[in-house]
């Protein structure tokens, strides 16, 4: 045998570490999947017996077998619609300014850095801001409006960042051609850039709103009520929301309320997963059609 290694044999030690490492990484991945399945399975087992049409239609109650999520569900619907109305124009507008209008200056860099950091601010801090600003300073009290404005602040940075990414994906050649045809900046944006980036923006918006739908902390800080026996009808009405109702039920010691919480979580998860599915659908359906 020569001293040079044969090309058909590997060093044994290298092969074993390689294999161990690969298996460890694979195990980590499988752990993630296992955890997800386990958690969701657990919730389904706990909640499925309590989930019924009456559960969705009934008002809240001190008695577990009479309690329902009607007010919480409607509260969440109010919140999410208002939040969408406020945050989408603001967020897309800010993204348009940063990507299409702002000169590459220090000012733009500052705003950009600021938005990235706002996205990392804990939602409870937005709740405190909402408490100080909307509830106290603007005298909006513990209303649906206060809650929606607070949630708007929570999701705004996320919508801006997602929209910016979608706008950046539109190639510059589209803008150049529109300008060369005599379009003004706004005409270029409105007729060409926005339609081309719409699937991306939509995906970002849906995902941010599903985040808003699951938020409880900022709403508790602005004073969402634990027990609201009516559906909000005006912007100034008191409100509760699905995650808050779940929180209240979970913090009760009685076993039955835990089952109610699980049933509430199931409703929330179904809504969230459908929103995610819509987002994925939009991304695939309209994203693939445009190939640059």
């Amino acid at each position: 045998m020569s001293s040079k290694p044969d090309i058909y044999t590997t060093k044994r030690r290298g092969r074993i570490t390689n294999m161990l490492f690969t298996s460890a990484c694979f195990l980590a991945t499988m752990t993630c999947i296992f955890l997800l399945v386990l958690l969701i399975w657990n919730i389904i087992i706990q909640g499925k017996g309590w989930l019924s049409w009456e559960f969705i239609e009934r008002l809240p109650s001190r008695f577990p077998d009479k309690a329902g999520i009607k007010t919480a569900l409607w509260g969440s619907i109010w919140l999410i619609s208002l939040t969408a109305m406020f945050s989408v124009p603001l967020g897309v507008g800010a993204a348009l300014y940063l990507e299409e209008y702002a000169p590459r200056s220090r000012w733009r860099k500052l705003i950009q850095l600021n938005i990235a950091n706002l996205a990392g601010v804990p939602s409870i801090v937005y709740g405190i801001l909402g408490l100080g600003l909307f509830v106290r300073a603007l005298q909006l009290e513990r209303s649906v409006l206060s809650g929606a404005l607070t949630l708007t602040l929570v999701v705004l940075p996320i919508i801006i960042l997602a929209s910016q990414e979608a706008l950046r994906a539109v190639p510059d050649s589209i803008r150049r051609s529109a300008y060369a045809l005599g379009a003004t900046r706004w005409q270029t944006v409105w007729y060409q850039v926005l339609p081309a980036s719409l699937p991306g923006i939509m995906t970002g918006v849906i995902l941010s709103l599903s985040r808003a739908l699951g938020e409880a902390a900022p709403l508790i800080a602005v004073g969402a009520m634990a027990y609201v026996p009516f559906v909000p009808e005006r912007l100034t009405d008191e409100f509760t929301a699905l995650p808050i109702q779940i929180f209240i039920w979970t913090s009760r010691p009685q076993e039955d309320f835990h089952h109610l919480a699980a049933a509430g979580i199931l409703v929330l998860l179904v809504v969230l997963v459908s929103m995610n599915a819509i987002a994925i659908f939009v991304r695939h359906k309209y994203g693939k059609k445009i190939r640059w």
Partner: peptide, 14 residues
């Protein structure tokens, strides 16, 4: 509008 332009790479709008 008076001076049209055609680019190297064709750039149809989507």
């Amino acid at each position: 509008k008076r001076i049209g332009m055609v680019f190297q790479k064709s750039t149809p709008f989507p």
